[in-house]
Deep mutational scan, measured.
Amino acid sequence: TTEYTFTDDEEARRAIEELKKRGLTFRYEKHGTTWRVRVD
């Protein structure tokens, strides 16, 4: 499991789109302004 942290909404959304394109399994949660994206 790899975890990424983003504080920029645009950056987080781009990363999420990219992961979807690659067909990877991931989860994300947003805490205030911080996004945590975990890739299995």
Results as ranks from 00 to 15, higher is better:
E18S: 09
R13H: 11
E29Q: 07
K30F: 05
R27K: 11
E29I: 10
D40S: 11
G32E: 05
T5N: 05
R27T: 15
Y28K: 03
Y4K: 03
R13E: 09
V39Q: 02
T2I: 14
W35P: 00
E29M: 07
V39N: 00
T1S: 11
V37A: 00
G23Y: 03
F26N: 00
K20G: 05
E18D: 12
I16F: 05
Y28H: 03
E17M: 10
T5V: 14
E18F: 10
Y4L: 11
G32I: 02
A12K: 02
R27P: 00
F26S: 02
K21F: 06
V37Q: 00
K30Q: 07
D40V: 14
E10K: 09
G23K: 04
V37W: 01
V39T: 03
R13I: 12
T33I: 09
E17K: 10
T1R: 09
E29Y: 13
K20N: 07
W35F: 04
E11T: 13
D9P: 12
T7Q: 09
A15T: 10
E10G: 10
V39S: 02
E17Q: 10
T34P: 00
K21M: 08
T5P: 01
T2Q: 11
R22L: 14
D40T: 13
L19H: 01
D9S: 08
E11G: 05
T1Q: 11
R38I: 15
R36V: 15
T33F: 08
Y28I: 15
A15I: 11
K20H: 08
T5M: 10
G23V: 01
T2Y: 14
A15M: 15
R22Y: 07
K30M: 05
T5C: 12
V39D: 01
Y4N: 02
G23C: 03
I16V: 04
T7M: 09
F26E: 00
T5H: 07
F26R: 00
R22S: 11
E29H: 08
F6W: 03
E3A: 04
W35H: 07
R14G: 05
D8V: 05
R27H: 14
Y4F: 11
R27V: 14
F26T: 03
K20V: 12
E10N: 12
A12W: 06
Y4G: 01
R13P: 01
D40L: 15
A12P: 01
K20Y: 10
D40E: 13
R14S: 08
T5L: 14
E3T: 13
Y4I: 06
F6R: 00
E29S: 10
F6K: 00
T25Y: 10
T25R: 12
K21H: 06
R14A: 12
D40Q: 12
H31Y: 11
E10A: 11
R14D: 06
A12H: 02
D40W: 15
I16R: 01
G32S: 03
L24E: 05
K21E: 09
E10V: 10
K21Q: 08
T2G: 05
F26W: 03
R36P: 01
K21T: 08
T7I: 07
R27F: 14
D40A: 10
T2C: 14
Y28Q: 03
W35I: 13
F6H: 01
D9Q: 08
G32W: 02
T25E: 07
T5S: 06
I16K: 01
T7Y: 14
T25V: 12
